[in-house]
């Protein structure tokens, strides 16, 4: 067994503008300061290119492996849907996960998504976020809260297991983790969902689902950096409105490149608290 040294692995710059250069793999990541990096706070976002998603489920399994997710739960899935009548039929593979939204229907200026707004533990005590350049930003914590870089996160220590955020999420991506106790009410289960692989991106490495995507259908980066691929794609394909359930006014930060306008037809709103998966793979 030989350990691979950092220098032996080629680097692919993935997370531009955040002041970090990403290696292809988690362990090898060494955040490197870029002198000319933008001073802005990053706004992490993902673009799902439906032209490129081939429904292979590598992302789903990579997420399980990376985050040690037990059987019975998924943080990201591919929804398969046949559209049309033989022989004029096609199929959409739709990657789904937490949209890391910014706002909500009732109060567009709130700058928090419905799951955060509804959290009884939000707003909690002040926290500090340090940008990759070392700039400190104060924000309000909570059991479910929004970090200044746009990540919607769960703090299991503060969670009371009430499940209101599960009901609040219009996308059904949140679920109780039967194996994590809610910190403030240990007799209840804490809530769990995709966290954009926070532990990786904080070290300058792209999320596990992005890393393994053979079609490069998942593109991750900083929307606040006009040079980033996600920013360019959002601009080029006019993706501001190309999100799931725009009528919910949640301002999601997972965008879909959907030139054939299939998103609306293909998306089946999920049952609360469950990213069920198997029912779709019959058509896989």
């Amino acid at each position: 067994m030989t350990e691979m040294t950092k220098s032996t692995i080629g680097r692919r710059q993935v997370l531009k503008g955040a002041g970090v250069v990403a290696a292809g793999t988690a362990a090898l990541a060494t955040p490197v300061k870029q002198a000319e990096a933008a001073k802005k706070v990053p706004r992490w976002a993902m673009v799902m290119d439906l032209r490129r998603c081939i429904g292979c489920s590598a992302c789903t399994v990579a997420c399980k492996a990376e985050n040690n997710v037990s059987l019975g739960r998924f943080r990201t899935v591919i929804q398969h849907k046949m559209i049309g009548t033989f022989p004029n039929v096609t199929k959409v593979n739709l990657p789904l996960m937490c949209n890391h939204c910014t706002s909500n229907k009732e109060d567009a200026s709130a700058k928090v998504p419905p799951c955060v707004k509804i959290c009884p533990e939000y707003p909690g005590e002040r926290q500090t976020y340090v940008t990759p350049e070392g700039k400190k930003i104060r924000y309000r914590g909570g059991a479910t809260y929004r970090r200044p870089d746009g990540l919607i996160l769960v703090d299991v220590e503060k969670c009371i297991g009430c499940g209101k955020c599960i009901d609040g999420c219009p996308y059904g991506v949140r679920s109780f983790d039967p194996f994590t106790k809610a910190g403030k009410k240990p007799e209840k289960q804490a809530v769990d969902k995709c966290d954009f692989c926070k532990h990786r991106i904080d070290n300058g490495v792209e999320p596990a689902c992005v890393n393994t995507c053979q079609g490069r259908a998942r593109i991750f980066g900083d929307l606040n950096d006009p040079e980033s691929e996600v920013a360019k794609l959002v601009k080029e394909h006019n993706l501001e409105k190309s999100v799931l359930l725009p009528e919910e006014k949640t301002n999601p930060h997972v965008f879909y490149i959907d030139p054939d306008n299939l998103l609306k037809t293909a998306y089946r709103q999920r049952e609360k608290g469950k990213l069920d998966h198997y029912v779709d793979t019959l058509d896989g």
Partner: peptide
Amino acid sequence: NGVICAKGQAGV
């Protein structure tokens, strides 16, 4: 190019 499939991810 550094990519593997679902089966590869499940090698563990």
